[in-house]
Amino acid sequence: MSTKVISLVSIGAHPSSGRTRRAEQDARAVELGLQLAGEHLQVVHAGDHREEALRAYLGMGLDHLDVLEQPAGADVLGVLGDYLRDAGAQLVLTGSQAETGEGSGMLPFLLAEQLGWPLIVGLAEVESIDNGTAQVLQALPRGQRRRLKVRLPLLATVDNAAPTPRQSAFGPARRGVLAAQDVAVVDDELLADAQLQPARPRPKRLKVIKAKSGADRMKAATAKASGGGGKVMKDVTAQEGADAIVKLLVEEGVLR
């Protein structure tokens, strides 16, 4: 395929240890790019080229990865936009949101706005590309898919519905080149008035009973007392059992 495909990658963080790694969704963007463009895939990162976690992308079989040198806390929008326009990209793939920093997921939207390109969210599969348009499948919640036809050049984000990234191998990761490019630096003013803090666990919402009548209140109170978890139904008919299950499924809203 002659379409020029570029994947944008960032530094990820493991959800339990917080250690840097290849970002899960960005790796999927690379995987999708590799499936589409093979060795012609171009992969770009804006940040520090000495970051070892970038090698995990190289380990997927890339021989080089362009790094637009940026200090931490810089706004990478401008340099990425310039890079993409200059590179003549037809299809740009990114993850949905970064695993480090703000992770607002705005970058692809802003890039698309800046470049004036259409944007697809949740790209799952590219079915065909011809005549300047791409036919793609978009991932919807609960595993559903929607078919779209989009004009190129196109920016698309991928989420967990995109193909699982291939394993990163040590050999290619070690051989690959992190090609640094010096570009302009624009500071991001966000952290001037905002601050990152370790995440606080969100409290589980309590079931607040705002009963409209005494009877409702009573019902709510008694229901709580008896439904204290671990209800075992023994010596019941299959029908009674099934009804109890259906009742719980409906309560939980998973049966529709």
């Binding site: 990820g12 963080a13 493991h14 959800p15 917080g18 970064a98 695993e99 480090t100 920093g101 703000e102 992770g103 607002s104 997921g105 705005m106 966000l190 008035d193 905002a194 601050q195 990152l196 803090q197 370790p198 995440a199 606080r200 969100r202």
Partner: peptide
């Protein structure tokens, strides 16, 4: 925008940041 906001209090909003290990107060 303030994204993934889970609490708005006292003219401040708190949203999850990154991979969910941090909160962004703004």
């Amino acid at each position: 925008p303030a994204t993934r906001v889970w609490q708005v209090k006292d003219e401040e909003c708190i949203g999850r940041a990154g991979a969910g290990q941090q909160d962004l107060h703004r």
